[in-house]
Amino acid sequence: MSVEKYLKPNVIHQIKRLDLRAQFVVKGFLHGLHASPFHGYSVQFAEHRKYTPGDEPRTIDWQVYAKTDKYYVKKFEAETTMQGYLVMDLSESMDYTFRQDLTKFDYAICLAAALTYLMVSQQDPVGLVTFSDRIRESLAPKSKRAQLNNVLSLLAKARPSGKTRFRESLNQLTGMLRHKSLIMVFSDLLMEDIEEIDALYRLAHSGHDVIVFHVLDEAEVSFPFTGACLFKDLETDQDLNTNADQARADYLRAVNDYREDLAKRCRNNRIDYVPLDTSVQFDKALTEYLLNRRTRT
């Protein structure tokens, strides 16, 4: 049931189209991920294929040649598989929307579902980690199609609550990971201190490929409020009585500055930063991101 909720037919259609349209993109996306981290790695032999000019000579299986007088190269699992982790922020602030159909959490789940679908379609194992003030739950990466259901089931049952302790949670994750992985972080990044983002640097410098999907609610991006308002933050339990019209300009400036700061920091640490808000259709956002990424690789 969760699949239908988060991957509606039109979304699936979009994803499929995405898959078809960007097949080579996805492959490339995936290929791009595969190339450098796994070079020279001792990985499990998967199968042989005929040698084509351009293949590296060291990959030729000489035993097969001895037997058959034909050139075959070895295919390793590392060429075709990539381990990914969906890292989902389950702090209370994620369970917020002002007037959109999806909360930030729901939106993040949609994103996660799409990416899970993609990876599973490529038989890439994908796992899930949820956190708020610490890692709450995790799913080991698997590549079977049932993994999508598992991920979505877990996410569907999850309830965002508690404060965000980003650094602690991600440091915990860093310790958990044994292999270089693709880490996809879904969070609104509303931390007490922006410096907590250095946990991502650790992940990135540990050899993992980190993508940060910074999900904010449309209201958090556009500040559509008017008049006198009493704003309350359930996570910090603070409130503020102010006139929204008066505060708008400064708020928007502050949010944009924050996003730009995050982008800059991620850029400097070779972390992909994808700013999103819930008013933007996630599939379009994802497509755009993937296209941009392909262009880069």
Binding site: S93, Y96, F98, L190, L230, F231, D233, T236, A254
Partner: peptide, 14 residues
């Protein structure tokens, strides 16, 4: 004032 839950409060407080 209208009471509103707003996680982006920290940006307002600045």
């Amino acid at each position: 004032p209208k009471p509103l839950v707003f996680p982006g409060l920290r940006f307002l407080q600045k």
